[in-house]
Design a binder for these strands. Structure first.
Length: 424
RNA sequence: GGAGGGGUGUCCGAGUGGUUUAAGGUGAUUGACUCGAAAUCAAUUGUGCAGAAAUGCACCGGGGGUUCAAAUCCUCUCCCCUCCGCCA
């Protein structure tokens, strides 16, 4: 959520900054400010009347105890009370209308973010290793997975539906090995491991920005206001909802494994084969709570921590800065890490590392206090995948494949897999 | 799922309709005393909104209601605890 004070002070600047995302929010922002004016006006009038009511309420028992007559003052209080009720209703209504719009306005891009329309305008800022070169015709991970009997989307289609997978045998083992390798590596870097609930309530989904705008992307459970988590970002960030964090604990760094559930509405026909786009996938997520002034450094560190596991796995990747038109709703700045995938002869997103400034913290009311006498202020939240597990497994299968159709297990996973390769 | 008991500030805890400015304690900060500390004494000590400020308003798990007036009464809801049932 954008700071209403910023909108009051300089709405033009906000409209201008959001235009770089490729959408014009002038009408919405004008609406917010109009509701804001009406609300503040009603608030002033209500508070004046409440003050009068409070004063009289203190007099009434005094008059009563000294045996005086209160019928006249009661009469006056009665009409005052109904006026206050009306104003309060008005304020509530305006507040709701203002909030409704405020919640669907995206975050303001950081000034350092390159202006652009879509993914074609994302500059590559660094890369690691060259794309894998084969002296034979490499296969896709879904071909290899089927041949080796480790990936089985057909059975998953029978049991559940499209965009689900069974991993079997060494495939299941590899998925689990990668999860453990990620968590172990991140906890060594100082992240606190958390195992979150995979179901969250509406407030949590609103706190991180998935709701109200993107409800169709989520799986909603029947018989309650519950949602399957689209990412561990949601439960982890909301751990501290409505809390004031002690400054000496900042920055807080968490890592968490979760299954992630996405409806993938609107992506019919895209990435229909393999592990790239599933309704359910595994991910290890990194989440940080930081002081505003440390957030830029923390984003670099978080991105480097996500890159570390790819380096250890010796998978070729590159890092791009998302341009204004390609950034997610809540983010102010995002680095995408893209792993090299032989099957598409190019790079695919495997991690998205973002700084959300105070956008999520304002929605979720997450603050910190520098010292006991200071005012509580909003923290900055950051998160990034560290990494998407299914895509990592796909990248390992494709990049480490051998001519005979076997897959060499990366050395970094030696402690997690007994075999050095997966053969048919 | 059934029965009962709870939710008040950092924490403990009082408060069943008005003179409550949420008592009292505890913790914290500052000052006095002290060579220093402890003890003692004193002051300060929640959050948000509006306002240039003075100040005002709101908040006792959350929503709604009754009333001139609600921490207190009604109602819905969330959470916690105890017992029973079921259960990986």
């Amino acid at each position: 959520m954008i700071d209403i004070k910023l909108l009051r002070n300089d709405p033009q600047a906000v409209v201008g900054a959001l235009k770089n995302r490729g959408a014009d929010y002038k009408k919405e922002i004008d609406g917010i400010l109009e509701f804001d004016r009406l609300r503040l006006d009603a608030l002033q009038r209500a508070e004046t009347k409440k003050h009068e009511q409070n004063k009289a309420s203190k007099e009434i028992p005094k008059i009563k105890s000294s045996g005086g007559d209160t019928s006249e003052i009661m009469e006056r209080m009665k009409s005052l009370s109904s006026e206050i009720k009306q104003l309060d209703d008005e304020i509530r209504r305006l507040d709701a209308m203002q909030n409704e719009i405020l919640l669907v306005i995206p975050n303001i891009p950081d000034p350092s973010v390159p202006v652009g329309a879509d993914e074609n305008d994302n500059p590559v800022i660094r890369s690691f290793m060259e794309p894998t070169v084969f002296d034979f015709q490499p296969k896709s991970h879904w071909e290899l997975g089927a041949e080796l009997g480790i990936l089985d989307p057909e059975t998953a289609a029978k049991v559940t539906g499209a965009r689900f997978h069974f991993y079997k045998g060494q495939g299941a083992r590899l998925e689990r090995a990668v999860i453990n390798f990620f968590l172990d590596t991140h906890t060594k870097e100082g992240y606190t491991e958390v195992f979150p609930p995979f179901i969250v309530n509406r407030q949590s989904m609103t706190g991180t920005g998935q709701l109200p705008k993107f409800e169709e992307d989520a799986f909603k459970l029947e018989g309650g206001d519950y949602f399957l988590v689209p990412t561990a970002e949601v439960p982890i960030t909301n751990m501290h909802r409505n809390e004031i964090l002690p400054a000496d604990r900042l920055p807080l760094s968490y890592c968490a494994y979760s299954a992630c559930f996405r409806a993938e509405a609107g992506s019919a026909g895209r990435d229909t084969r393999g592990l790239i786009r599933q309704h359910q996938f595994n991910k290890v997520e990194l989440v940080k709570f930081s002081r505003p002034e440390d957030a830029a450094d923390q984003l670099e560190k978080l991105t480097a921590d996500a890159e570390r596991v790819l380096r250890l796995l010796e998978l070729p990747y590159r890092v791009v800065t998302l341009c204004t038109g390609d950034m997610g709703f809540s983010s102010a700045k995002t680095y995408d890490i893209e792993v090299y995938m032989p099957s598409c002869n190019g790079y695919r997103e495997i991690s998205s590392c973002s700084c959300f400034t105070d956008f999520q913290a304002r929605r979720a009311n997450i603050r910190y206090k520098e010292s006991i006498n200071d005012k509580a202020q909003l923290v900055y939240t950051l998160n990034g995948s560290g990494l998407a597990v299914g895509r990592t497994v796909a990248a390992i299968i494709e990049n480490f494949q051998n001519q005979d159709g076997s897959i060499t297990i990366p050395k970094a996973l030696a402690g997690y897999m007994e075999e050095e390769s997966i053969d048919s």
